[in-house]
Computed example of a mutant assay.
Amino acid sequence: MESVTFRNPDMAWHIAADIHLPPAFDADKRYPTIVSIHPFGSCKEQTSGSVYGKALAAQGYVVIAFDASYQGASGGSPRWIESPSQRVEDVSHVIDHAVTLPFVDADRIGVIGVCGGGGYALNAAMTEKRIKAVVGITPVNLGRLFREGFSGFDPLGTLTAMAAQRSAEARGAELQVNELLPASLEAARENGMTERDVYEATDYYKTPRGQATGGATRMVFSHAQKTLSWDAFAFAETLMTQPMMVVLGQKVGAFGAYRDGMEIYGRAMASKDRQLVELEDWSHYDLYDREEPVGLALEKIVPFFRKHLGEEDVSAAEAA
């Protein structure tokens, strides 16, 4: 694995990424490459890199797991902004960097994302046609989630509160940084926060199971207004043309990944190869890192990418 930072001329900050390389990597070869997008409130060292990044690299792909702008080791200020438009633009910036690397086959680039990252991956593919195949692992449409559960089903009231807070901060008040999860499993139980997704998210992010330094489950409240008007699946019927796979756990939770995954699968009628994978006995957060469901998911994902991205190009090495 190589850790890198890069920036584009139209960016005021850098993007940090881990490049996971295949076994017996040969810089004279050109490899199909997969961009891996982390969940909302996560970082590249968690499921996008340490689980799916490593697994796909072991199958012969170059995998670039990156930190979103304002998060992890990437730049951008203030910290902990969740901006869907920037998150999608980040994917294009990563691809911009990838196509400059001599070992990346620019004609065989795929994208995979987990949770909110799955929603971003699917959205990015609609307008970024350098992406040749896309996989959403338990994908969440973050705009829908913000308009519903994350705003207490009061999006207009939430926008009004965000407006007041942003004005206060412009006048010198401290940023309102919201913690998204209970501090521990014990705190979750004590406060009755035992709904499946909330409790399992706490088990992943707040215990040694999934904790990582860059995985701050925080969000600047005043800068999230645009999230409430964002829709990961807008124009999917027309613009989602690439091969697409959605992987879902059938144990449903409040964050709505099963619902969102079924929606995008149903709407993406223009996709050249539309596939749905449902795992009966598993939940949203099981698909982050649990060995059995991740293995079941990869049994479908790897052949899908093989079909649409193929194997590495050995012609350069053979010619040498």
Rank of each mutant, 00 (worst) to 15 (best):
Y70F: 14
P22N: 10
A27N: 12
V63L: 03
A98R: 00
F25T: 07
Y120G: 05
L21D: 03
P32A: 06
L56H: 10
G60L: 09
G60N: 12
H38N: 13
T100C: 05
S74A: 09
D105N: 11
M11L: 14
D18W: 04
I34T: 02
P84M: 14
Q86D: 14
S74D: 04
F6W: 09
E45S: 09
S92F: 08
H93D: 06
P23L: 13
E45W: 02
H38A: 13
P84Y: 12
R108F: 05
Y31K: 08
S50K: 12
G119C: 09
I112N: 02
P78E: 04
V111N: 06
H20F: 11
Y61I: 03
A57T: 03
D10S: 13
C43P: 00
H20C: 01
I15C: 08
R108I: 02
D18Q: 12
F40W: 15
H38Y: 05
G117D: 10
A65L: 04
V99Y: 00
E89C: 05
S92Y: 06
S83M: 09
H20G: 02
A68Q: 11
R108A: 09
G75L: 06
A58M: 10
V51Q: 13
S48N: 10
A55I: 07
I34Q: 01
I34N: 01
T100Y: 01
W80E: 11
D28V: 08
S85F: 10
H38S: 12
I95Y: 03
A98F: 00
A27D: 11
G76D: 04
D26E: 14
D105R: 00
H93K: 15
V91N: 07
P9F: 08
I95R: 01
V62F: 03
W80A: 06
H20Q: 07
L56W: 07
S42N: 08
H38R: 07
K54I: 02
A121E: 09
G119F: 11
I15T: 15
W80C: 07
L122C: 08
E89L: 10
F66N: 01
W80D: 13
A121C: 09
P78W: 08
G110F: 03
I95W: 02
D26P: 11
G119Q: 13
H20M: 06
V91F: 09
L56S: 08
H97A: 05
V104M: 07
A68G: 11
Y31D: 07
E82W: 14
V104G: 03
R79A: 11
G76S: 11
H97C: 05
V111A: 15
F66Y: 15
Y31A: 04
V35G: 02
V88D: 12
F40M: 14
A121M: 07
S48F: 06
L101D: 00
Q86S: 13
F40N: 13
N8K: 14
V99P: 00
I81K: 14
S42P: 01
R30F: 02
H14E: 14
L122K: 10
L122P: 09
S48L: 05
K44R: 15
V114F: 10
I64M: 01
P78H: 10
E45V: 02
A12Y: 12
A68L: 10
P102C: 05
